[in-house]
């Protein structure tokens, strides 16, 4: 019994440690006045309203969505077919993808940013495109794991064989059988990638800077001018991530036929 209450206490402390800063920030986004009291003296929507009325925020939000979704779409178009071909037909090359996945995790953003600037700045390529390219590579682990795990759940090679023997072309077998089968894992990987890229700050700030203001750069600027507005940005960000997490959980629990046969 004593052990149990200790465990409960530690769990409570852990939850408070994790949740309190988030709750405080969210409350601050709605706080009218909050100076010498434990809780806000009054609540207001004016900070969130001000944020959504600020064209700079809306543009920054649009840029972040565009950059993150653009990188995810390119990754899906380029990386997914490559993973399929390697896993199904050239499994001996899979170790190279795994090595690339580890490298993506192991490179700190600052090193990557310096490297990108040194290599690409002299070619006259738009640095936004360079960041976009780096983003595509940086989400390789999420896309790879999502696809690979889904392929592991089914005998993908045998499904392809069966479809072809029933008269399907390789492309038809891919689009009608394999893609719908791995879709939940792929979709979850894509959403996860999107949320990671949406919150990315180091690369975009170091390589492009405020010339291309994303939500994160907007947030950093607002930190020095208005804590309430900055908190409102965090609130919007957390809501967006909450929605994405909910969708990922729903999709991965998808009951309709696909996976685990």
């Amino acid at each position: 019994m004593k052990k149990r209450s200790f465990a409960d206490l530690f769990f409570l402390l852990f939850v408070v440690y994790i949740v309190l800063p988030v709750v405080a920030t969210m409350l601050y986004a709605f706080a009218d006045k909050w100076n010498k009291t434990i809780l806000p003296e009054g609540l207001t929507l004016k900070w969130v309203m001000t944020l959504f009325q600020d064209p700079a925020f809306m543009q920054a939000f649009g840029r972040s969505v565009l950059l993150a979704s653009g990188a995810v779409i390119i990754a899906l178009l380029v990386i997914v077919p490559a993973i399929f071909v390697i896993v199904l037909y050239f499994p001996k090359y899979e170790k190279w993808i795994q090595a690339a996945v580890v490298m993506v995790y192991s490179f700190p953003g600052i090193i990557l940013a310096v490297g990108l600037i040194r290599v690409y700045s002299k070619f006259g390529i738009s640095m936004i495109l360079v960041v976009l390219g780096a983003y595509v590579i940086s989400i390789l682990p999420y896309i790879y794991q999502g696809t690979r795990n889904s392929l592991r759940n089914v005998d993908a090679r045998q499904l392809l064989d069966a479809a072809q023997l029933l008269g399907a072309s390789k492309m038809q077998a891919f689009t009608k059988i394999l893609l719908p089968t791995v879709y939940p894992g792929l979709f979850a990987g894509a959403l996860l990638s999107f949320s990671v890229l949406f919150g990315e700050f180091v690369l975009i700030n170091l390589v492009v800077g405020s010339r291309f203001e994303t939500v994160q750069i907007y947030l950093m600027k607002k930190l020095s001018t208005s804590g309430h507005i900055a908190s409102a940005v965090v609130f919007v960000y957390i809501v967006l991530m909450g929605v994405l997490t909910f969708i990922i959980a729903k999709v991965t629990k998808k009951t309709k036929g696909a996976t685990n046969v």
Partner: peptide, 19 residues
């Protein structure tokens, strides 16, 4: 090509399309 052979196959693991 397999699809041109008019050969059917039943696999040990069934290979039913899960979707």
């Amino acid at each position: 090509e397999p699809k041109e052979r008019q050969v059917g196959m039943v696999f040990q693991s069934y290979a039913l399309f899960p979707n």
